[in-house]
Write a protein that binds this DNA or RNA. Structure first.
Lengths: 236, 236
DNA sequence: CGGCTGCTTGATCGCTCTCAAATGGGGTGG
DNA sequence: CCACCCCATTTGAGAGCGATCAAGCAGCCG
């Protein structure tokens, strides 16, 4: 059992972007230096404001990354999936985590502490290069979402968010495509910069039109192409 | 003259975050490999969609980085100042520039093409580390602005934007603090995700209250502390 | 089966966008 | 040096998107 888990983690790391180009020996070395962390839904890997001691790579599950303002407004920065990094502040010298990471499904991650991180990047420059690339991609992603938030209507933003979630966590079921982790209206609202009420109204209207089918913290897209045209703001 | 310019560029590079920790010889080497680019106000270093051949480091002047949506809505990502990088896509392997870079004052930058960039990062790992850090800082900055856009009112966002601009481009004059490059209401609107009309109304109201004094593409903050409390949403 | 938690829906309000028109400052060309 | 024109800005009026508040509903877990 223990060994099986270790092996599946190895599989994830082998294809994780961060470790691309490393040979088996290097990979083994990285794994050996990692700490294994497991969380159940609702548990947190770290909280906003904590000392940033480690960075994480998600092997299994789904992690919600959120930020909260002094006034108590919460926004969802992203949902991280298998093979993605989160809490990567230590890689670039930040002191505190600027966000909270919460498991939304049972999740296991590998974590490296700060000195180990530095050592790895020194020893395997490819890792630093990959990190640079991943950070760049993330920057582009956030910029895009910023632009959308600044210029698009709520309905379109919600559609876009769903399209993205489908791409990274969609699972075919007979009724359509299911987003395979619990996702409330509140979550969607915090992901798109609106309120739970508005999201609820939008989803209700889509349900009437047969675009989706939803339940409590559960969404199935029945006609993905229709959702995409909503996201692109094409008139039906 | 030529030599004087070269020397001032050297000064900028010496303190630029990207090249921190490099010795004189390494610095000279970097300079030697760079291309010098000069632009007058309104000219562009590159446009969104162009092949990303080089990355830039601004030695003098001010550069506006903008993105435009398919529907033609423009947003300002940031204003880069002396010593900052822009167009750094090549550092992390992107193909096209995701934004346009326009000089707002007479500007000179040094630029490195893609192979040179790779070589520099290989030869001087500190540069890669610094780049990682700078990218990380920028990511945090964008995330913050995203959060603000999602949760704050327009007036507060405009106040925050002005506070930031004062910090990075404020110049003491007898009437208060001047933002030392031309900045229109339209620019401010695109920087804060609102319209030129709303910005105009807000600035008019602030002018009435004596917080600022403004003219055409010109803003002086008379009472910076009042602006800060507007940005933090403290009641006066 | 009870209660908690998430969801729906109605009513209302107000911030902000939109469109229209006028104003004015500054630079340019004669 | 002056006049003109362009562009940034101001201001008003109106509409509407989406937030807010208040209730009621329903699935699900213990």
């Amino acid at each position: 059992m223990r060994v099986l888990e270790r092996n599946s983690e190895r599989q994830v790391l082998r294809v994780a972007p961060l470790f691309q180009g490393l040979n088996e020996e290097a990979l083994e070395n990285c794994i050996a230096l990692a700490l294994r962390v497991e969380k159940t839904p609702g548990e947190m890997f770290f909280q906003q404001g904590d000392q940033a001691r480690r960075f994480f790579l998600l092997c299994r599950g789904r992690v919600k990354v959120t930020q909260i303002t002094p006034e108590g407004h919460q926004v969802v920065a992203r949902y991280a999936g298998q093979g993605q990094m989160f809490g990567c502040v230590p890689m670039y010298g930040g002191k505190e985590y600027p966000a909270t990471a919460t498991a939304v499904t049972r999740s296991t991650a590998l974590a490296w502490d700060r000195p180990t991180t530095d050592r790895l990047m020194e020893q395997y420059p490819r890792v630093a290069i990959s990190a640079l690339q991943l950070l760049g991609d993330e920057l582009a992603e956030v910029r895009l979402r910023y632009q959308e938030l600044a210029t698009e209507r709520v309905e379109q933003r919600v559609a876009r968010a769903l399209v993205r979630l489908v791409r990274q966590a969609g699972k075919k079921v007979d009724a359509g495509v299911l987003i395979e982790f619990p996702l409330s209206r509140q979550d969607l609202a915090e992901l798109t910069g609106t309120t739970l009420y508005t999201v609820s109204r939008i989803l209700s209207s889509w349900e009437e039109q047969g675009v989706i089918q939803s339940g409590r913290r559960r969404i199935v897209i029945r006609t993905p192409h229709r959702l995409v045209s909503l996201a692109e703001d094409l008139l039906p």
